[in-house]
Structure formats: C-alpha cells, structure tokens
Amino acid sequence: MTDTQTAGAPSTGTAASGPAGGKKDEKQERIASLWSDAWRDLRSNPIFLIGAFLVFCMLVLSAVPGWFTSGTPFAANACTLQNSLKPPTGENWFGFDVQGCDIYTRTIWAARNSVIVGVVTTTLVLTVGGALGLLAGWLGGIMDSILSRITEIFFAIPLLLGGMLIMSGREGNAWTVSAVLATLGWPQIFRIMRSSVLQHKNNDYVVAARALGASTVRITLRHILPNAIAPVIVVGAISLGVYIGAEAALSYLGIGVQPPEISWGLMISDAKDRFLQAPHVLLFPAAALSITVLAFIMVGDAVRDALDPKLR
C-alpha cells in the first residue's frame, strides 16, 4: 500500500533467491514470528538502515574518539587563545571556539557523555519500568493499584523541571544525570509494559501453557515477556534519543554535565552569547546533537512501523 512496501517486496525476494537464500527462507517461515517478519521489513527500509548506520557511528565515536581525531580536549596545550572564534579552515574543519579550542576535537570527544547518558538511562528505565510493569500487569490486584498510583505521581512532574529540581545543588556528571533522568522516566515504560502484558495475559497460548502445567514464572518469562516486549523496545529506542536531548538541555542550563567534562549541551551554552558574531561555534555541536537524536528516533520509528501489523 505504501511506497516502502512495494519497493521492499521485490528486494527481499531477490535476496532470498541467492545461494544461501533458500535455506534462510525456510527457516524464516518456520519461525514466522512478529520479529522475523519485522526484521525482513527493516532490512529493506532505508530509514532504518541510515538510522542504524548513524547509531553505529556514534557508538564507535564515543568508544574510541582517538580514531577520529589526533588531539584531545583535555591536554594542557589544547587551546590557543590566539585562535579564538576563528572560522572553519581546511585544517580545522569546524573552526575554533572562544577559548581557541578546536571545535572538531571537542565535538568528537563530547559524544561520549551523550551516549553514556542515553544508554545508561534507557537501560535503567527498561529494567526498572519493565520489571515493575510486568509485575503489575501479571499480578494485578493490590500490587497493580499501588504501583499504578505511584506512577501517576511521577507522571505529574514535568521531566525537565523535575530534572532541574533534583540536579540543583548536586554534582553534575553523566552518571548523576542518567540517574536523575531514569528516576523520572521509568513510569512511561511501566505503563506500556503493564498494558502490553494485560493484552497478552488472557490469550489462548497462555491458557494452553497453564494447562500443560507450566509454572507462573515460566509462563511470564518464556511466553508473555517475549510477546509483550515489542512496544517497550520501540519506545526505548525513541526515548534514548529524547534522553540525549534532555541531557543537553540540562547541561545547556548549567546543571547537567560540568566542566572540565565536555558535552554538546555545554558547548552550545558556551557559544550562545556570541552566536551572532560566530555562529559556527554553536552550529557544529548542535548539528552533532541533532543527528544523534535523529538517528535513534529513525531507528525507533522504523522498528515501530515494522512491528505494527495494521500497517502491513
């Protein structure tokens, strides 16, 4: 019905008719789960491929920034004041900031804090929110009521303001920022997990497993969890981008990551006072930040579309 599908169908067909294709195809039909269908969709979706490539680049960049730049922003002689606000040249692609530091080097090294915040926050949120959501959805009753009331309380507090509130007067680095964002962010995953479990819990396959004598723990972990986790993963991928943006916003306001650590939000905040005079100082870290957030949202969007049977 949509362009991607008409374009996508033949390309998977040709891929499957290769030498190894026959065997693979057979295997896929045998499983024929939501995930294998989705994976087939994703492999031919340009949005997913571009997003995944960018995410991969960001991960490599943050793990080994030394591969991409010879300097480090933390060396004593990293910045020369003479170079203050110089525009980009062939040698220094991104130009220099007000302190005469090379913006390219700083932008590359700043990726690490953003990726740490994104990954750590998402992991925390998925584990805590996911586990509690599973518990509430499966057990129901008083447990469900109590946990749901607690999430309502968290939901009423705006993310950015709540983050500012907790971060004020505390030491700011990537780890504390992650902890704070996770504290405020887990209820979202809780709600999705809970409703997803509720949808699956009365299905025939659960009754069948129960009739076969499977224990509650086994049914929950082996049968319900794999089926209910799809929407959680999607929201997780999208919110990873959102958390990176939130870290930048906190750092921009001066209560996130603190110098001498570097972060894109911090670089933007430093550059804002001289934006009219030297826009490149602000625009390069801003572009890096936007591309990273975009990459995660693209991946999440594509996975959601692939997992949604209504769009098939």
Binding site: L276, S290, I297
Partner: peptide, 22 residues
Amino acid sequence: TLLVISIPVFVTGFVLQLLLGV
C-alpha cells in the same frame, strides 16, 4: 516533523532568532 523532533529546542530557538529576528 522528524527533523523538528530531533533538533533540540534551544538550537531551533537560536537559529530562528537569527533568521527571523535579525
């Protein structure tokens, strides 16, 4: 919309301030 969602508010803010305001 995908672009607007990905670009942080403070970046859109400064860029539009420059383009529209100045």
